[in-house]
Design a protein around this nucleic acid. Sequence first.
DNA 1: GCAATTTGACCAGT
DNA 2: ACTGGTCAAATTGC
Length: 352
Amino acid sequence: MERTMDWEQKTLLNELTQGKQLTNLLRQHLHPSSSPETRQVLLEKILCSYEKALSMLNWGGFVVETKPTGSTLESPASIANSSLGSGGSDKKDVSKKRKTSSGWTEELRVCSGTSLEGPLDDGYCWRKYGQKDILGSNFPRGYYRCTHRHSQGCLATKQVQRSDEDHTIFEVKYRGRHTCNQVSHFAVTSAPVTREMSKEQGNHSRKRQQLEEKQKQSQEMFMSLGAGLKVKTEELDPREDIFPSFPFPVESEEVENSMFANSLMENEIMGNLSPTFMSPATSESNYFSVSPCHMGSFGFAQNMQTSESDLTEIISAPTSVTNSPIGDLDISSLDKLEFDPSFPFDNAEFFS
DNA sequence: GCAATTTGACCAGT
DNA sequence: ACTGGTCAAATTGC
C-alpha cells in the first residue's frame, strides 16, 4: 500500500540527510590538518548520496549520470525503489505495476555444473514472492525480494530461472540494491545457499536457523563447484545498463572496470582470490563503518560489455561469489581506499 | 504462532 | 489480448 511510498520517501530522506551530514563532516575536515583522502572520500560519499536521491526522483527517466572515474557513484536506490512496489496494490502510485525489463540491472548466469544442483546463493536472504511460467521457457521464473524489505526497506529483488538449454544453469537477474544491513556469512565465505532452487529440490530451509549448516554445506559446495562455476553477465541494452546497481556478482565486472582492475584481475583470473582484500573480517568491519554509500556504486561494469562474454568465462564464480559481500560493502566509493593501505580505516570514524 | 512459500488473481505495458 | 511482475490469501513448515 502506501508503504512503498513511505519507503521511497524514507530512503530519499535518508540519502539527503546523509548528504547533509557528510557535508558537515567535510566542512569539519577542511582543516589543513585533515587528510586529503578523507576529504576525497567524504566528497564521493556526498555525491553518492545525492545521486541516489536524484536517481530516486528520476527513476522513470533513468537519469543517472555516472562518471567513469574511479569514484563510481551511482544511484543505487533508484533502481531498487523503482518499482518494486511493495505491498500496496490498490494504490495508484506503484503497486502491481510492471516494470519493463529495463529495470533489471544485471543478469547473471550461475551454473552449477557439478554434483550439487542449484545455483549459488549470493549471500542475501531472499524471500520468494511469486513464480511465473514464462512463455517459451520450460521452467518457471521465480521472483524474490530481500527478506528485509519490510524491516529495513531493502528493495533489492531478483529473478531466478532455470535455463532451458542447460537445466543446471540458473539465470539470475538482479534489480535494486540491498539497502539492508544484512551481511551474510555465506557471502563472506562465498557460501552458496540456494533458495532459488528450493522448490525444485524441496529443500526448504529457514536461513537463520540453519545458517550454520548451510554455511558448511555451501562451503563444501563451493569447493566442489569451484572450477565448474560460471557467472555470466548478459548484455543488456546499453542504455538500460546505465544503472549497474547490483552488488553481488556483477562485481566481477566492475572490478574489471575499476582502476585497480588490472592487478586484481590478474589475481582473480589466475584463481588467486586475494583473501586479504576480501577477508570476511575486513568486509564486515568496513561494511558498517563505511556504509553511507554502501549500496552505491557498482556501476560502470556495463561499459565493459565488450569482452564480457570472454571474460565472464574467465571470471569464475568463485570470484564473483567471493566478492559479492564486498560488493555490498561499497567498493564503489571506497575502491581506491580499499586498496590503499595508507588510507585505511583510521578514517572510518568519520562514517559512523 | 510466526515466517516463508505457493499460487491464482490483479495490474500495467506492449 | 497477451505477457510479465507483483500482490495477497492460503498453505506449509518449524
